[in-house]
Design a protein around this nucleic acid. Structure first.
Length: 110
DNA sequence: TACGTGACAAGAG
DNA sequence: TCTCTTGCCACGT
């Protein structure tokens, strides 16, 4: 990984940027990739602080059930859904359809 | 300086 | 199978 980013947050953003178009991942997957499963909550916190970063696709990060738990942190509760659908990802009832198929695990793919 | 909060996850009962 | 409890770490008050 890039050593230019030292802080935990920066590393979270780094991984988030690597999420392929049309794919999704979970907070835990990112936390696990960074070395600590228990830091999943930190990933969520990092996403909360990622608003200023336009190149961080926070909408591709959902919880382990594929639920869009963070949609309320977007400008509109529909924005996250629309962003995902614009990438060809089906969203129903605030959850990613075919989540298992679209799931992207950095610790495996990288 | 210390305590509570938060977009989570996994194990145990 | 479902619900409850614990772990983990940075940030704001």
């Amino acid at each position: 990984m890039n050593p230019i980013n030292d802080s935990f947050f920066q590393r979270v953003y780094e991984v988030a940027r690597l999420i392929p178009y049309g794919r999704v991942t979970s907070y835990g997957a990112i936390a696990n990739y960074l070395g600590s499963r228990g830091s999943a909550r930190m990933v969520g916190w990092a996403m909360n602080a990622s608003h200023p970063y336009n190149d961080v696709p926070a909408h591709r990060v959902v919880n382990r059930n594929g639920l869009l738990t963070g949609k309320h942190h977007f400008e509109g509760s529909q924005l996250m859904k629309e962003l995902l659908e614009s990438e060809g990802i089906e969203v129903k009832d605030d959850a990613v359809v075919k989540f298992k198929e679209l799931y992207w695990d950095p610790s495996i793919e990288l």
